[in-house]
């Protein structure tokens, strides 16, 4: 199985450590990963603004880049959902390349749990943490059970985190409320977006957590920005960083040497 790594545009440019951690994690789990050159963006910013004509060529380019791989893994629920749930607007029902990618593009935790069948990660993470369940991972990809819907579902990110030694996951009061990022919403509705973000961060801090963990860096870019501006006592980490860091601490982790992960 040759797996392609899809790194969302803003992670490539602003958060390379998250991409490195994703690559490291997958390699330590024994996955053969390639990073196809020439990839940029899935087209979500244009699509969510309603600009279909500007989205279509970006979507077509994305499918062309990744079509030859058995599977695609992406460290973002939101970008994965774009491909799985929204790309159909730009491709015919008989487009085999798109249909293949629609069925074989995974969010990182989903890939680890569902495709690799890995349900625990050997490693240690000795800090009190809390989970931010990103909306698109939760309600579009169903990576866990959301509070509104009564259908029981396994929470993939929580399962992996709970398997780490030393970790203490603090409960927050509103388990899956939106952080208010929402792409252009963050600037178009600045006041509301900021109010939502501060409420989320406050909930996490009040829980006694020191590190907020999420599967989407976009939420963390928004809340991390609020945290730094206000010097709030909390840091943010992508799930890939936590898992890769934890595995690195575990001597039996892998037969491949992993690159050092620069801390942010």
């Amino acid at each position: 199985m040759t797996v392609a790594l899809f790194i969302p545009c803003y992670i490539d440019q602003f958060f390379p450590d998250v991409a490195i951690a994703t690559l490291t994690l997958l390699e330590r789990l024994g996955v053969e990963v390639e990073y196809p050159a020439g990839q940029t963006c899935c087209g979500q910013p244009m699509a969510n603004t309603g600009c279909d004509a500007d989205t279509a060529p970006v979507a077509k380019q994305w499918v062309k880049r990744f079509a030859s791989y058995d599977a695609v893994v992406c460290p973002s629920g939101s970008c994965t959902s774009m491909i799985r749930n929204h790309y159909a607007d730009y491709f015919g029902p008989n487009d085999t390349e798109f249909q293949h990618l629609r069925e074989n593009t995974y969010e990182l935790c989903e890939f680890v749990v569902d495709r690799l069948g890995v349900r625990s990660i050997p490693g240690t993470f000795n800090r009190p943490v809390s989970i931010h369940s990103s909306c698109h991972g939760l309600r579009e990809l169903r990576l866990g059970k959301c509070s509104e819907n009564m259908t029981p579902r396994e929470d993939k990110m929580r399962m992996l985190l709970e398997s780490l030694d030393g970790i203490e996951i603090k409960p927050i009061t509103r388990v899956d409320e939106c952080c208010g990022f929402g792409g252009t919403f963050a600037v178009a509705e600045r006041e509301t977006s900021v109010a939502m973000g501060i409420d989320r961060v406050t909930d996490h801090i009040t829980s006694g957590s020191e590190v907020m963990i999420a599967g989407d860096m976009s939420c963390l870019m928004h809340m991390g920005g609020l945290i730094r501006r206000r010097n709030m006592p909390m840091s943010v980490k992508h799930i890939a960083e936590v898992l890769a860091e934890a595995m690195q601490s575990d001597s039996s982790g892998s037969d491949r040497s992993a690159p050092a992960i620069a801390s942010r």
Binding site: C135, L138, R139, E177, F181, G182, F185, T192
Partner: peptide, 13 residues
């Protein structure tokens, strides 16, 4: 339609 972060909570509720 833009006064929305597309969180999807409304759809599930």
């Amino acid at each position: 339609p833009f006064a929305c972060s597309l969180c999807g909570s409304c759809t599930d509720v």
